[in-house]
Simulated scan of single mutants.
Amino acid sequence: MTSATLTAPLAPARRLGVGAGLRHTLTLAWRSLVQIKHNPMELLDLSIQPVMFVLLFTYVFGGAISGSPGDYLKFALPGIIVQNAFFATMTTGFGLNNDLTKGVFDRLRALPIARWSPLAGRILADTVKQAWSVALLIGVGMILGFRLGNGPLGLLGAFALLLAFSLAAAWISVLVGVLVSEPDKVQIFGFMVIFPLTFTSNAFVPTETMPGWLQSWVEVNPVTVLADALRGLLVDGPVAGPVVQSLIWAAAIAVIFAPLAVRGLRRRV
């Protein structure tokens, strides 16, 4: 006598709510931040290099460009903050590619967590590191003589604008991170793109000192726009126009690169 054994169909996996996804995101962001304790060099990269740029540019180029290091610091510090922010976004792609190549991302995606939380956790952790780097730069600048022209509100506005722009620019890094095969290639991309982008802006020298054919690009360069916005918020000068233009640039970058990065990540995993 034979008997047929009937098995009930498996119930579909329960969809996780937004609240659960946010908790998973915070947990994974904390995981990325805790790694700093075991790998302090990760934080030193965001600390030593920007401070070195501040000291070198202020005391080597300050007298030649602005007449004195103090006057040049008022002009250059916002630009150095912007350059550092662009470089810091590359850590998102570097860390993501490292997780992908080592299989960490696959293990995280196999857990009963929101599908978007590993990527969101990575970006959130890097935003916290970004805030640390900006605070360090402003602190060192104030030790060297930099003074806030618009008080605490201007400082908070500069922080908010820079972090919002960095969140948008991080999608470029994510796209690079999912396309290249090794983490080091993310850094190579950063040096090949970010250095020309920042040095063909008014981050370090006034636009009018450059050749006329270059000034046309400098004026629309997103680094120039963001540096002008930070100068207006932190020191003095126009605020509304540069801030609006910076937000437009951030929105355009996010609209273009976020879908491409998400599509590339889905193909990779």
Rank of each mutant, 00 (worst) to 15 (best):
His24Glu: 01
Leu124Met: 11
Arg31Ser: 05
Thr127Arg: 05
Leu56Gln: 09
Ile138Thr: 09
Asp71Ile: 05
Leu100Arg: 00
Ala88Arg: 10
Arg115Gln: 07
Arg31Lys: 10
Lys129Thr: 07
Met52Asn: 01
Phe57Val: 13
Phe75Glu: 05
Asn39Ala: 14
Trp116His: 08
His24Gly: 01
Leu43Asn: 09
Leu22Trp: 04
Phe61Thr: 12
Ser117Leu: 04
Arg122Gly: 07
Trp132Ser: 11
Lys74Ile: 05
Pro118Leu: 00
Ile36Met: 03
Ala76Arg: 07
Asn39Thr: 15
Phe53Trp: 15
Ser47Lys: 03
Val134Leu: 13
Val51Cys: 09
Met90Asp: 03
Thr92Asp: 07
Lys129Gln: 08
Phe105Arg: 03
Thr25Ser: 02
Ile65Cys: 14
Met90Val: 11
Gln130Ile: 06
Gly93Met: 06
Val134Gln: 07
Ala114His: 09
Ile65Tyr: 07
Asp106Gly: 01
Ser32Met: 10
Ile36Gly: 04
Val104Lys: 03
Thr92Leu: 11
Leu119Gln: 00
His24Ile: 00
Thr58Gln: 12
Ser117Gly: 05
Leu22Cys: 04
Pro50Ser: 02
Leu100Asn: 01
Pro118Gln: 00
Phe75Pro: 04
Leu46Lys: 14
Ala131Glu: 08
Phe61Asn: 10
Arg122Cys: 04
Ala125Trp: 02
Leu111Met: 14
Tyr72Ile: 13
Ile65Thr: 15
Leu26Thr: 13
Gly63His: 13
Ser66Arg: 13
Gly79Leu: 04
Ala76His: 06
Ala125Pro: 03
Asp71Leu: 14
Leu56Glu: 07
Leu33Met: 07
Gln35Met: 13
Arg107Gln: 13
